[in-house]
Structure formats: C-alpha cells, structure tokens
Nucleic acid binder design. Structure first.
Lengths: 146, 146
DNA sequence: GAAAAAATGTTGGCCCGACCAACACTAAGG
DNA sequence: CCTTAGTGTTGGTCGGGCCAACATTTTTTC
C-alpha cells in the first residue's frame, strides 16, 4: 500500500478519522449478521441503561438527531425490539420501552462490539488500551459540555 | 447535555467515532474560509510531498476512491491550484502538478489544521498528546497493510 | 389567566465522505 | 499475440449526521 503524506500521518485528526473508518466498518460488518445498524445499538443501550424514554431524550443521549430517531425507533418497533406508545401523562410525547426480544438483540450486539474493540485495538497491550481509552475519554468529555 | 449510556462511553470505537466527528467539523469549518474540503487538502499534501502524480496514485496515497479523485482534482484545477495534463509517456494517464497558487493554498490549510489539532486535543498536555498520537499511529499502521 | 417561549414528533430534504459497478482505453506480461 | 492489469471517467448507492419547517402540546413568563 502506498504511504500517505507525512503531513497526514502525523496529525491526530487524520489518525482518528482513519481509525473511525475501520471501526465503523468492523462494527457494520459485525452488525450485518444481526440485521441492525449503529443507531439501533445506541438506542437499545440507552433504553437498557436508563429505562423507558421519550424519543427526544433518546436523541440527546445517543447523539442522534430527532428526525433520525423516528426512523430508527420505527425499525426497532417493527422487529419487536421496542414498544412505542403515547405517553399517558403527555399529549405529544412517546414512551419507548425495551422488550425482552430487544434485550436479547442488545446482548447479541454487545458480543459483536466486544470483538470489534479487540480487532480494532489490534496490537496494543491491555495497559496501552487503557491509556488510550482514558486519553480519548478525557478529550471527548472536554468537547461534550457544549 | 444528557449523558450517553456507559456502554458507549467506555468503548474505544465510540470515542474514536465521536471524536472524528468533532475533528471533521473543526476542519470543515476552518477550511470554509479557504473554500476547500478535506479531499483537497489530502491531494495538495500528496503532490507537495511526492511531486507530480497520476490520479490513481493520488487516490492510493490519500485513501480516496479513483472516482472521487476525478472530481476533487477537477475542482482544484478550476481554481488553478493544480495542473492536469495528459502524461506524455502514457496514453491514458494524467499528470497532476502542484502550482504556486496551490502551494499557497496548502500553506493556508496547514495553518488551519494546526489550529484544529490544538482545539481538538484541548486539555491534553504535550506529553499526553504525543502518547496519544503514538498509540493511534501504532493502531492505524496495524490496519493499513491490509 | 393569557401570551410568549420551549419542547415533541414527524416529514422531507441536503451534505460529506466513502464505496462500487461498469465502460473505454492503454500498458505490461505471459 | 492475447490476456491481464492499470487508468480515467460516469453514475449511482449508502450510512451517518444535520437542518428547516410544521402541528401540537407543555412550560414559562408576564
């Protein structure tokens, strides 16, 4: 494979961008067996961790646009992984709930993602993986507030 | 801002993916002043570092699909940042060359990207930045060969 | 309590970056 | 020579992310 210019290979923004491609591909290929996409995993994870939620809250939690939550929740509901019912205390709001099938799907996707982390971090030792994760986490939380 | 599920925030693939978004946005906004995109920078950088090249080679070097190189080089040529002429020794191949204006544009984008790295890595010390960059580089080179 | 502001679900569309298939043509290798 | 590989180009697809607008409902503010 031809070498990219050094201007790129030494820039964190390039490294992160290229790695995010590999990560997305690994996850996408892994999820293919489950018939799901990244958005589905995020939403299932949020429901499992925080309980039933409105679509707007799911969007904020998962960093997904409201309009895309509509579609993703619709697909999840079609396959029986979530229930979407109008919130009784709230005229407009929906209440999205994780079903037993949804929980099973989440577990399947968890296994996939665990393997993905392993493939992604490839040659790094356990310590290096922890260092990397901590550094990335610090950087991300610095950008998250706003 | 609502907290994302812990399932996500502890996964390197999530951290890298989210950070790549911030990086792309910072670069995109910075490049806006220069009227260029990411593909343009990659190509200009490769031309400056390796000299004139065919479009196919640019694509391999910059990790850009051949078909997208066509468009990007076309845009660069329109603005006078590169010359695209048929390779005299080669019937089909093009020879793309960096112009003086292109070099100036590259320098402008270099400055933008330097600021982007700074904004992106935010709170990290110089040592931590180096550690992070090294780790990311090791992981990426592990995936590059194949 | 009424008026203004914010929140929610939904539709429809746009963008970048990445990718693929096909075609015409040329170069290189058996 | 004939097959294989490389090149430029067109045209299209996809995921993820994003925005504008709308109707409707809740909350805030006066």
């Amino acid at each position: 494979m031809d070498e990219p210019p050094e201007r790129l290979t030494t820039k964190p923004s390039w490294l992160i961008g290229q790695l995010s491609l590999y990560a997305r591909r690994l996850a996408f290929d892994g999820f293919a067996a489950t018939g799901a996409r990244g958005y589905h995993y995020r939403i299932l994870a949020a429901l499992h961790e925080f309980g039933p939620a409105s679509q707007a809250e799911l969007g904020r939690r998962c960093r997904v646009d409201r309009s895309d939550v509509v579609a993703a929740v619709g697909e999840l509901a079609e396959r029986g992984f979530v229930d979407r019912t109008p919130d009784p205390d709230h005229g407009r709001r929906n209440r999205v709930t994780l079903t037993d099938d949804g929980l099973r799907q989440l577990r399947r996707m968890d296994e996939v993602l665990d393997r993905v982390q392993d493939d992604l971090l490839g040659p790094l030792s356990a310590e290096d993986r922890q260092i990397l994760t901590r550094l990335l986490g610090r950087v991300l939380t610095h950008h998250e507030p706003h």
